[in-house]
Design a protein around this nucleic acid. Structure first.
Lengths: 254, 254
DNA sequence: ACATGCGTTCCACATTATGGAACTATATTT
DNA sequence: AAATATAGTTCCATAATGTGGAACGCATGT
């Protein structure tokens, strides 16, 4: 007996399923579509959805299609998830910058570009420019490759810009590279974003294991040998997992 | 009372109330606290919360306290709210650029700076540089002033940088300026971000009336007379409200 | 006018949610 | 170590609650 199946929750199960459907739908579903998809009578759907709407968990557009409600959109926006994230990842960046001596960055998906949201500089002068706010394309940065590889963002349409001598510019090559990233667990670039720039990046995952961000270490090719890339990648992975123990054990927190 | 009270939804009403409580709580509540606050028996609370947890709408931390679940955190992050927004606001930027001839921008709060997420250039060459990705401080941009004035972001700590001859650099002056913005409904700058640059910005609101972004029109002082500022401000406000009819309930037929 | 598709309201019915009590698991106190 | 308190889960008899077919409303299209 491994199934402690909760019972007496039919209504909530159904309503939750509808709510989740609405939250995750790429295009706002109509009542009839929801009813069909969940095999519910229209009357039942109407009642369930009405209740959710009354609470502000969902709302309807002028066509009557269902959208996430104000409670949810407010939660999504007001709560600065990025800030939470940078706060939580700060120590990781610091440790990485300390151990490697190079610059460490934290990035999430941005509007067409990698969005760098935090940085800790290494101990060298060369390479410590502030990246925050710069426009880094996905396909030619280590951070971007990680975000692409794990499906956090789709490969952008249009041409792949040749930013530097060795930028990847064809889709097949990029796809192969992303496959490699997934196999290795980390991404690298060399002369792909800027001549002489090397970077290594690994994914940051949430509670559920979904990739939500990436952390990189980057510096000049003059200081980072090719054979260090793997150990750097593993260092990043290890530091990230130290920060976010993927289990659910005891840990004092405020 | 003309209240079309929906009935037959007790379980969902209760579960929704609990869910919302958890979403909006500043500190994760325990089952007993939820039960107390909502005047429910522990057994009922346990069952309701168990159902929500099973669906991934809520999750428990190691103390057993309830947090928003993976479905919601994923929605909050991955779902590119900015993209939705730029898509919806594109026509407004286009109309404004068309009507005024100047550059129109859409911005949201960013990491310490105004984040410009879309731009439509005007018909003049002068002034059409691409702002997307640049670091614009809140206190010396029209967009930033709007975001500050309506509390979308707090006034940053630390000194107020003097970016240009007439940048506001003291807190009292800034507070007074923000009060003016709220009274007018729009914000302006002149020689505050860059010498010779004039901009006007107005707030973009969501369904509920919360300010979530700002739209500006900007150009060289040489082309924009002081007395045009008000009409520009009103034009922006009017175009935004055309895009988002503030009807809360039924918006009639198309 | 008629047909179609979407959504809401109604209501008889029994399935489903309810909540008190018993129980388990951890802290806290004596 | 036992006693007490606090937080949470499971059980189950009971009836209140949610259910869904049918009828109705209300647009839009033919």
């Amino acid at each position: 007996m491994a199934k402690p199946e909760i019972t007496g929750t039919q209504a909530i199960d159904r309503a939750s399923a509808l709510l989740i459907h609405i939250i995750e739908a790429s295009t706002p579903p109509l009542l009839s579509q929801l009813a069909l998809a969940h095999e519910l009578p229209k009357s039942t759907s109407s009642r369930l959805l009405g209740a959710l709407e009354k609470q502000g968990l969902i709302q309807r557009d002028r066509d009557g299609a269902y959208l996430p409600g104000s409670v949810l959109t407010r939660f999504a926006r007001q709560r600065n998830h990025e800030l939470d994230l940078s706060l939580k990842m700060r120590p990781v960046l610091e440790t990485l910058a300390e151990k490697s001596g190079e610059t460490a960055n934290l990035a999430i998906v941005g509007n067409g570009y990698v969005e760098l949201i935090d940085q800790v500089d290494g101990r060298y002068l060369l390479g410590a420019t502030n990246w925050i706010g710069t426009q880094v394309p996905y396909h030619c940065s280590a951070l971007g490759k990680v975000l692409l590889a794990y499906g956090v963002v789709k490969i952008p349409n249009g041409r792949l810009e040749k930013r530097a001598p060795r930028s990847i510019t064809t889709r097949p090559a990029l796809l192969a590279e992303l496959e490699l990233v997934r196999r290795q667990g980390f991404a690298t670039i060399k002369d792909e974003l800027e001549e002489g720039l090397i970077a290594v990046a690994a994914p940051v995952r949430d509670f559920d294991g979904n990739v939500i961000a990436a952390i990189s270490v980057s510096g000049p090719a003059a200081r980072i040998a090719d054979k260090q890339l793997t150990s750097l990648g593993e260092m990043i992975i290890s530091e990230i997992s130290k920060q976010q123990p993927h289990g659910s054990k005891k840990a004092g927190a405020a």
